[in-house]
Simulated scan of single mutants.
Amino acid sequence: MPAEAGTAVVRAGEDRDCLVVVWEQQAAPDREFDRANDLAEGGLISCATGTSASQYEATLSALRDAAARDSREELLGALDVPLLYIDAEGNRRDLRETDFASRDFAEVFSPEMLALMRGLDLGDMTVVPDQGGFFQLGALWLRPGEPGGRPRIVTINRQALSEAARASIEQAETSS
């Protein structure tokens, strides 16, 4: 599909443009930005996630800033709780606000995860219908809590982050 098409059709009784459906849920949609940035790896952001590219970009900008300042309060405020956390060995656990003692916070928001967050770019996102958008092989997943809303972090996967780092190193070595 050409990028200038910018939208797809979703069936909801009648054919409707996904962006129009999303914009109906927003007080002040950024139509120009959304049309120009709706296409992501895996499909259209609006159709796959139920919100707009501008909502994702607002979240990504806030995460970049919070990670750059290592702002515990802002990072925790970006989470959808319970957060699915997958450690470096692949062990899964649901974390709640009370689980973020110093150790858990430092483990979840490791220097590597903060580095990933500082470099988040909408163009690097992959979307999966009804699951949200992800970065770095699934190291970080975001999903809106409501149609048209701002996405929140739903999964942090340290195992995927390590795999993405290894893949990046291997790719750099083969490119040299």
Score class of each variant (00 low, 15 high):
Gly43Glu: 07
Ala66Pro: 07
Phe33Lys: 08
Ser46Trp: 01
Ala40His: 04
Ala48Ile: 04
Asp70His: 15
Arg31Ser: 12
Ala58Glu: 04
Thr59Val: 06
Thr51Asn: 01
Arg69Gln: 12
Glu41Arg: 12
Ala67Phe: 10
Asp38Gln: 09
Ile45Asn: 07
Glu32Pro: 11
Ala48Asn: 11
Ala62Ile: 10
Thr51Cys: 04
Ala66Met: 06
Gly50Leu: 07
Leu44Lys: 09
Thr49Cys: 12
Gln55Phe: 08
Thr59Arg: 00
Phe33Thr: 14
Ala48Asp: 02
Ser54Arg: 00
Thr59Ala: 14
Gln55Leu: 06
Ala36Thr: 15
Ala62Leu: 06
Glu57Ile: 09
Ala48Ser: 13
Arg69Glu: 13
Ser46Asn: 12
Thr59Glu: 02
Glu32Phe: 15
Arg69Lys: 05
Thr49Tyr: 03
Thr49Asp: 07
Leu60Ser: 08
Ser52Pro: 02
Ser52Asn: 13
Ala68Gln: 09
Asp65Met: 11
Arg64Ile: 03
Phe33His: 10
Arg35Tyr: 07
Thr49Lys: 14
Glu57Arg: 10
Asp70Ser: 14
Leu39Tyr: 11
Ala66Cys: 00
Glu41Trp: 14
Ala68Phe: 01
Arg31Gln: 09
Phe33Gln: 00
Leu63Met: 07
Arg64Tyr: 11
Ser46Gly: 00
Arg31Gly: 13
Asp34Glu: 03
Arg35Cys: 13
Ala68Trp: 09
Arg69Ala: 13
Ala62Val: 00
Ala48Cys: 09
Arg35His: 15
Ala67Lys: 10
Asp65His: 02
Ala58Asn: 04
Arg31Met: 12
Phe33Asp: 11
Arg35Met: 15
Arg64Thr: 05
Tyr56Leu: 05
Ala68Ser: 00
Leu39Asp: 15
Arg35Trp: 14
Ala53His: 07
Thr49Trp: 02
Ala53Trp: 03
Asp65Trp: 01
Glu57Met: 00
Leu39Glu: 02
Ala68Asn: 06
Ala58Ser: 15
Arg64Ala: 05
Asp34Ala: 11
Ala58Pro: 00
Glu57His: 11
Ala68Thr: 03
Thr51Ile: 01
Ala68Glu: 05
Asp38Asn: 12
Arg69Leu: 12
Gly50Asp: 01
Ser52Lys: 04
Gly50Thr: 04
Ile45Leu: 13
Gly43Ala: 08
Phe33Tyr: 01
Ala53Arg: 00
Leu44Asp: 06
Ala53Phe: 03
Ser46His: 06
Gly42Lys: 06
Asn37Met: 14
Ser46Ile: 05
Gly42Ser: 09
Asp38Met: 13
Ser46Asp: 03
Ala67Ser: 03
Leu63Asp: 05
Asn37Gly: 11
Leu63His: 00
Ser61His: 09
Thr59Gln: 13
Asp65Asn: 01
Leu39Trp: 14
Ala68His: 10
Phe33Arg: 04
Ala53Glu: 05
Thr51Gly: 02
Ser61Trp: 14
Ala48Pro: 05
Arg64Phe: 08
Ile45Asp: 05
Ala68Cys: 01
Gly50Glu: 06
Ala66Arg: 00
Tyr56Lys: 09
Thr49Met: 12
Gly42Glu: 00
Ser61Val: 14
Gly43Thr: 04
Thr51Ser: 05
Tyr56Ser: 08
Ala66Lys: 10
Ala48Val: 12
Asn37His: 15
Ser52Leu: 05
Ser54Ile: 11
Asn37Cys: 15
Cys47Thr: 13
Ala58Phe: 11
Gly50Cys: 07
Thr49His: 02
Ala62Asp: 00
Glu32Arg: 07
Asp38Cys: 13
Asp38Trp: 15
Ala68Met: 08
Ala40Lys: 09
Asp34Cys: 12
Ala67Trp: 02
